[in-house]
Design a binder for these strands. Structure first.
Lengths: 251, 251
DNA sequence: GAGTGGTCTAGACCACGAA
DNA sequence: TCGTGGTCTAGACCACTCT
């Protein structure tokens, strides 16, 4: 059973995307919407809050809500999975595991994964392609407790996230991402088929379970021009944060 | 007067950052918090929702909320202003306007700013520094209707956002950001003092008013290593979206 | 089965924007 | 001044987790 406010949000979203409410135009008031959908004002507010986080509408106290855009800012249930994202977008995705070995955690890795330095981790190198072109090099370190499940995954498996969910019920629930640009190193340039020193988009991330237990710490490098990150924000809600310098030494 | 739920969120946030609730530990139930703060359950839920969007706590139906982290994911009232961000972080910031001229909008610019191609725009080139080091090159195109106000700004002004607010009451309310990596071009390398072709973090953005009216379209390039973007997300709320290829041709 | 968060209701008052 | 969204209350039922 889907929630009432989700359905209302969907109807309003469709109306906006059909152009029934033009960009820049006003949405009906909460009171009007409550009558139209035969719901309480609270439920209507939940619905428009969904549209607000999608960046479709904006609001100010005292004035009616405004339509800000028509493009659906696709909200992914798949938080981190490159494969699931690419498939949802209709791209042909492939990938292979190039290297996999157990070792002790470095100081940085231990800090990121809430382990002690030297505790066992599983280090994995994966190359992923879009439409047959290599676009992403993943250097992932998994906490020791999940290593056995990772090792059981087929090396040619498209979606590690999905495999871990189906295999052991693991859900990647929360993530923190650090995004910057780096020059391609020797290994990067060989595997991604770019020149040494050419620009790469780097995304470092920690992923945790619902309980906040860190699962993986990864350094993902995208070939320039292959992928763009997109973010919408407002004066009220701003998920994007700038930080100075690199964060290798942060706790 | 600050809202009740904001105060409750602040108290809980402080308790988390003091370590009163350890990372991985449970928060009290909504019912307990409602009693403790003498507030209704709805208000308590608003408070913990704040912490959830800050990435400090997570939740699942049926289970108590979990503390996910202790670092404050600083939420900036200043959405776009490099200067205001840098000052808030305690950095020494400076900048200068290098070039400024009126011209007609290109097809891309017109689409981004909701104008007709050829309509007048103001093109501005700015170089910004942190601790005296050049780190950011901004190529901004302002819609014609705001151009006079931009031209009145002092060339050495630190914060354009602030100047436009104080000058004509303009608020940069919403933004969409496209983040990728590019190689430094001739002008980039000269002004940022990096080698030609070296990696830059590029942030393209459209900024609009509360009414959804586009104000500026900017191509900002950060020297690699100078700035990192940080984002937190969860399976439920995912502000980050990947897109393939570049978006110069998108409407 | 008990406890918890997710949803929903029907009211109320207030701060703010627009006319 | 009036309409609007922002906040808050006090209830209710349900879906889910945990033990």
């Amino acid at each position: 059973m889907t929630a009432r406010y989700v359905g209302i949000a969907a109807e309003l979203r469709d109306a906006i995307m059909r152009g029934e409410y033009a960009v820049g135009a006003q949405l009906p008031s909460e009171a009007e919407l409550a009558i139209r959908f035969a719901a309480s004002r609270g439920t209507v507010r939940q619905a428009v809050a969904v549209l607000a986080t999608e960046g479709l509408v904006g609001s100010r106290q005292g004035a009616r809500r405004i339509v800000l855009g028509r493009e659906r800012s696709q909200s992914f249930a798949e938080l981190h999975s490159f494969a699931q994202w690419a498939r949802a977008m209709g791209h042909r995705v492939s990938g292979r595991m190039l290297e996999q070995r157990r070792r002790g955690a470095s100081a940085t890795e231990a800090a990121r994964l809430a382990l002690q330095p030297g505790e066992p981790v599983l280090s994995v190198l994966r190359l992923r392609s879009l439409e047959g072109e290599p676009v992403l090099l993943e250097r992932t370190v998994y906490a020791g407790w999940i290593a056995p499940a990772v090792e059981r995954i087929d090396p040619g498996c498209e979606s590690v996230t999905q495999a871990l969910y189906e295999g052991v019920g693991l859900v990647f629930a929360y993530g923190e991402h650090l995004i910057d640009a780096v020059a391609a190193g020797v290994e990067d340039s060989r595997l991604l088929a770019v020149r040494r020193g050419s620009p790469l988009l780097r995304q470092r991330r920690v992923t945790t379970t619902h309980e906040g237990r860190p699962v993986e710490w990864s350094d993902d490098r995208y070939r320039a021009g292959s992928v763009t990150f997109s973010i919408r924000n407002s004066v009220d809600a701003n998920p994007l944060v700038r930080q100075v310098g690199d964060l290798r030494s942060a706790p």
